[in-house]
Each structure stands twice: as C-alpha cells, then as structure tokens.
Design a protein around this nucleic acid. Structure first.
Length: 452
DNA sequence: AACTAGAGCAACCGCCTTGGA
DNA sequence: GTCCAAGGCGGTTGCTCTAGT
C-alpha cells in the first residue's frame, strides 16, 4: 500500500481546493451523484484523485453539513461518546448530524482534550487525573496499562480452553452505510463484513464488557443501535465519567447516556442488545421460553413491535450459533450451557424485556463468584461480572439460576425523557413509530446466521 | 512592524476491509 | 484462493490566522 493508485497515473492537484474546483465538484455531484468516486474527477473535470473528491465532499461540500462552532451540548455528547467509543471518530460523528469525523477529531485534539485536562480528567481514560502524573505521562501510562492488560488477557485466553472453541462469524453492517448516509441510493444495500473469532476474543479479553456487548449484539459499530447503559450495569469499570457534563440534557439522565443511530433515533443501551441482536434473531412468531432463568440485571427496552417471547443462547465462547434460520427456534447458541434470553413475552403493549442468563447444566455449585456477589452491592456485582467475562462465564457455569437472579428495571422512560431534549424536532415524531431498522436487522441476522 | 508560538482546520497519508474479477 | 481497485477510517502534517512580545 502506499499512495492511492489514482495518484500514480497522472499529475494531480493537491492541497487546498479552489472555489472553482468546489463548484465543479458540487455541480457534478448535485447533478449525477458521486457514483464511483474514482470516476468523479474525470467526469467533473477535476485534476484531483477520487479520494480527494470524496473527502472534499464529505467534509466540506455536503449540503447537510452543519456550520459553525460546536455547541456546548455537542461538546458534551462528543465527550460522552468518546468515553464509550474512544477515537472512533466516524462513529461519534454518526451521532452528531451535520458534523464530520474530521471536524470532531480536530475539535477533540485541539480543544476538548485540553478542556478535560483543565477539569482534571484524563482525556484518554476519562478518569480523574491522578496527582503527580502529568497528562502526557498519564497517557503513556494508560497505553502501557492497556498493553499489559491486553497481553495478560491474551495469556488468560490461551489458558481458557472454553474460549478457544472454533471460530464463528457474525454479520456486521458496513461502515460506509452508516457513516455516509447522505446518498439515498446507498440505503438498503446489503453489503456486510464478517468479524471472525479473533475479534471476539479480543473483545472478551480486553475486558470491555461494553465492547463485548456492542460487538456481540449490535449489527455494527457504525450503525450501532445505541444504548443507554448504566455503566455499573453493563460497562463494568468502563471509565464513563459523566461528572464533567452536568448541564446538558444528556447528563441530566447521567447514566442513561442515550446514544443515537444514523437516523438520529435514540435507544437504550439495553435496546442495543435487543434491537440489533434480538431483532436479528427473533422472528415475530415463536421462540422458546425458559421459566427458570437467571435474570440478567440490565433491563432491555424494546420497541413496540409484535414480537413474541424469545431467547438466545450465550456461552462463554466466542463461537455463535443460531437456529434462527428456520424461524422456529429463535436463539443464538454459543455453547450448550448458558442462555441469555428474554423471559417475558413481547408485544405491542409490553416492550420491556427481561433477559436472563440461564444456566442449563451446572446448577447448585457454590463458587467464589457467588460469594463475591453475595458480599457486594448489586451494582458492584454486575460491574465486576461485566468487567470480567471470565468471571461471568465462571459464574454462569456454576450458579443456580436463582442465585443470580436480579430484578429487572424498566428503562423505557429514559428513552422518552431524553429524546425530546436531544433529537431534532423533526425527528421526534419518529419515536412513536416502530423502527423499520429492527425489521431490517431481523432480515440481516436471519441471513447472517442462516448458513451456520 | 517584525517575529514567534500556538490554535484551528483542511487535506493528505497509510493502513485496513470489502467486493468483484 | 488470490489479486486488485475502491472506499473508509484514524493519525498526521502543514497551512493560515491570530495573539503576544
């Protein structure tokens, strides 16, 4: 790899775009659309490479771009999203209509990082800066810690044969679809990419339960069907610090932390699991129901769609299976022992799902995990579990369903409470409508898992 | 007025993934 | 299965502007 092939062929202009070039590009795309970017410069009469044209369009000429400085609310959203997503600028940008990843990246590097440091928050970890460690040292230290943790986790993985089951893949939506949704013809395209098992291994072992869930249950990062997640519920020790954004509408719900999908819908973290994972694996008709479940603490909000009871199976392995292909047994099975499932019927009047990690085999064992859970607060328990997938696995494999049962907290109100303040006015009406995204995902996962 | 440093921003670079041949 | 072009993304560079000296 190196310079783009198009740049070899002829001497192309580089550097800043002139108004004439802008006009040519704008006129061409307005009239014909961009189609294949590599052919755009020729058709538009530009001495630029296709990539350069694409970038110019995306970052500057696009008509839906929002100009001007970032509002305080936008900054807060970026900070919150960065705490969750890290430097995934395109994903962050996807939650801020009219803003580009480049813009956000520049803002972060030039302004927000500084602001966070001034507030005593490490922009890398989003945790309070410790005294005696300056920002740069802290960053380096954080990177080192990550490396160490990563290596350690890899070793743990090797030790854990249960995690070394054969590879599986699941479908993930293409990033292009999500990020650059301004070309209508792109919508509905069905490209996909496969994430192999090694990705999932890393997800598990980097001890980010957030990532674990997002990767496992969302159809894509880019189009992540959002979640609001109570960090103590799902993110373990994930460093989501809300304290620095106390005034905006997001932060009034603090730990609800709503996210948005490409169409500016907001969902609940739990809904991410349900909307992307569930919708892709559930048929609206049948699924199994297991009365003796281990209730998984986070409650899942599901859009009001006519979906019956459902379950999907999880094990500690990164190997997923589903029997959804025949639409009779709508479950994802990772291994034979554990199920993560919804144990409430879903219909238009009951959109709250209670999910369970159900132990299907090893019941009644007393374990360290159980003792741990008994001794800690509920929040801490789940934090610990979600922080450490191995603990989770161990617990699930050794606990009785009852011993792990926690109450389910409805969370739909978080959605409605927050959206009004966040969504553009013209988007708010969508909230009452069943999301077509979900049915799309049903098709996608069905297709994705159908061949397994 | 000249110089310098820093901030902000636009664009490029290099790598990765995807999909078609 | 391999190769390659295209597209996407995050990191980096370099230019311009502005404030301070």
């Amino acid at each position: 790899m190196g310079r783009h092939s198009c740049c070899y062929k002829q001497k192309l202009r580089k550097g800043l775009w002139s108004p004439e070039e802008d006009e040519k590009l704008l006129r061409h795309i307005t009239k014909y659309g961009h189609g294949c970017w590599s052919s755009v410069p020729k058709q538009a009469g530009l001495q630029r490479c296709g990539k350069s044209c694409r970038l110019r369009w995306i970052n500057y000429l696009r008509p839906d771009l929002k100009r001007g400085t970032f509002s305080q609310e936008e900054e807060n959203i970026i900070i919150e999203l960065h705490a969750v997503l890290g430097n995934r600028w395109s994903q962050i940008a996807a939650q801020l209509p009219g803003r580009t990843d480049n813009e956000i990246k520049n803002l972060w590097n030039s302004c927000l990082k500084k602001k966070l440091r001034q507030r005593g928050i490490d922009p890398v970890t989003h945790k309070p800066l410790s005294e005696g460690e300056n920002g740069e040292d802290k960053e380096a230290a954080a990177r080192n810690r990550e490396k160490v943790a990563s290596i350690s986790n890899e070793l743990n993985l090797l030790k854990s044969e249960s995690f070394m089951s054969d590879a599986a893949s699941y479908e993930q939506r293409p990033s292009s679809l999500a990020t650059k949704g301004y070309t209508p013809e792109m919508e509905g395209s069905s490209c996909s990419k496969t994430v192999n098992a090694s990705s999932n291994i890393n997800l598990m072992n980097n001890c980010s339960s957030k990532d674990f869930f997002l990767e496992r249950f969302s159809t894509s990062h880019q189009e992540s069907y959002t979640t609001s997640c109570q960090p103590s519920d799902l993110m373990g020790n994930f460093p989501l610090q809300m304290s620095y954004a106390p005034t905006d509408s997001l932060s009034t719900n603090s730990y609800s932390s709503h996210w948005f999908n490409q169409s500016a819908r907001s969902f609940d973290m739990n809904a991410e699991l349900t909307s992307s994972a569930m919708s892709t694996i559930l048929s609206p008709t049948t699924s199994s129901y297991h009365p003796a479940s281990i209730c998984y603490k986070p409650s899942f909000t599901f859009p009001s769609e006519d979906i019956s009871t459902a379950s999907f199976t999880v094990n500690g392995s990164h190997d997923w299976e589903t029997s959804a292909s025949n639409n009779r047994n709508n479950s994802i099975r990772i291994n034979s022992n554990t199920e993560l499932r919804c144990n409430k019927p879903l219909n238009a009047h009951n959109s709250i799902l209670a999910w369970g990690l159900a132990d299907c085999s090893n019941t009644g064992k007393e374990t360290q995990i159980q003792q741990l859970m008994e001794s800690q607060t509920e929040e801490a328990k789940w934090s610990e579990y979600l922080h450490n997938p191995f603990l989770m696995l161990a617990a699930v494999q050794s606990q009785t369903p009852e011993s792990l049962c926690n109450e389910i907290k409805p969370s739909t109100h978080l959605l409605s409470d927050t959206l009004g303040a966040i969504l553009p006015h013209n988007k708010q009406q969508d909230l009452s409508q069943p999301s077509s995204i979900f049915s799309k995902d049903i098709q996608k996962l069905t297709a994705a898992f159908g061949h397994i």
